[in-house]
Computed example of a mutant assay.
Amino acid sequence: MKNNLSSLRDLASAFGKAPVDPDTAVPSTSATSDDSLVYSTDSGRINQQQEKTVTPSDGFAKVRRETKGRKGKGVVVISGLGLDNKALKELAKKLKKTCGSGGSVVDETIEVQGDKREVIQQVLEKAGFKVKLTGG
């Protein structure tokens, strides 16, 4: 090891890093750059590409009724489906149309307004899901 570190190349080799050639260096704004970069004066705010992962299903679609945080209004929450966002939205549309009520997709769950657990159970079983009613 050199005792005299006269350049960055010598410093990089002292720490076991391969020296970087400026001719073949990748610009810092590329997708292969450091993932912790948040802002660059070269290109502004850097939007990170985050991969959406779907939680795998345990084989049961859990259907429960909730009222907490909804001013006493009841909704049926369906979770544990193991579907991607597009498939969840299609299934939610089918469930809302069958129940004749509103609802939404929140994270990896479907919320349908009202207490229509039996109807939702039948629709999910026809779609090939094993359904487990949870809660009271």
Rank of each mutant, 00 (worst) to 15 (best):
R65L: 15
G135D: 07
D10A: 04
V123P: 12
T29F: 14
R70T: 04
G103I: 03
L81C: 07
D10G: 01
G80N: 11
G80L: 09
R64D: 09
V76Q: 01
K130M: 11
Q50W: 04
D34Y: 11
T24H: 01
R45Q: 12
K68I: 06
E66F: 08
G44I: 05
P19T: 14
G135K: 04
I110N: 07
G72W: 03
I120K: 05
D10S: 05
D42M: 08
T67I: 02
G59F: 11
K96N: 13
L5I: 13
T24D: 02
D21V: 03
R65H: 05
P19D: 15
K116Y: 12
Q50P: 04
R64I: 00
A25E: 13
D35I: 00
K89E: 10
A12F: 12
Q48S: 08
T109Y: 04
T29M: 07
V105M: 07
T53I: 14
Q113N: 14
K96M: 15
C99G: 05
E90R: 10
G16I: 14
A18P: 01
V112E: 07
V105I: 09
K17F: 10
V75R: 12
G16T: 10
S57R: 02
L133W: 09
D107N: 08
S104W: 06
D115A: 08
K68G: 02
V76D: 06
K94C: 01
A12K: 11
P19N: 10
G128A: 11
L11Y: 15
E118Y: 10
F60Y: 07
K132P: 08
S13L: 12
E108P: 01
A18W: 07
S101T: 15
R64Q: 13
G69F: 05
G135C: 00
V20L: 13
A61K: 10
L133Y: 09
N4K: 14
E125A: 06
V26G: 01
P56F: 15
F129I: 02
V76P: 05
K2V: 08
Q50M: 04
E66N: 05
N47E: 10
G59K: 03
D34K: 02
D107W: 05
A92N: 04
L83V: 03
P22A: 00
V75D: 13
L5G: 03
T29H: 09
S36E: 13
S57N: 07
S101R: 05
K62N: 12
K68Y: 06
S104N: 14
A18N: 04
L83C: 11
L83R: 06
D115L: 13
K2R: 13
I110R: 08
F15H: 00
G103V: 02
V38Q: 14
K126Y: 14
R45D: 08
S36F: 00
V63Q: 15
N47I: 07
N85Y: 09
A25L: 06
Q122W: 04
G103C: 03
I46H: 02
S79I: 00
D10L: 01
P56W: 14
S104A: 12
K71G: 04
T55P: 15
E108Y: 03
L95I: 11
V76M: 09
C99D: 12
P19G: 12
V112T: 03
G128F: 14
S33E: 05
G72K: 00
D35G: 03
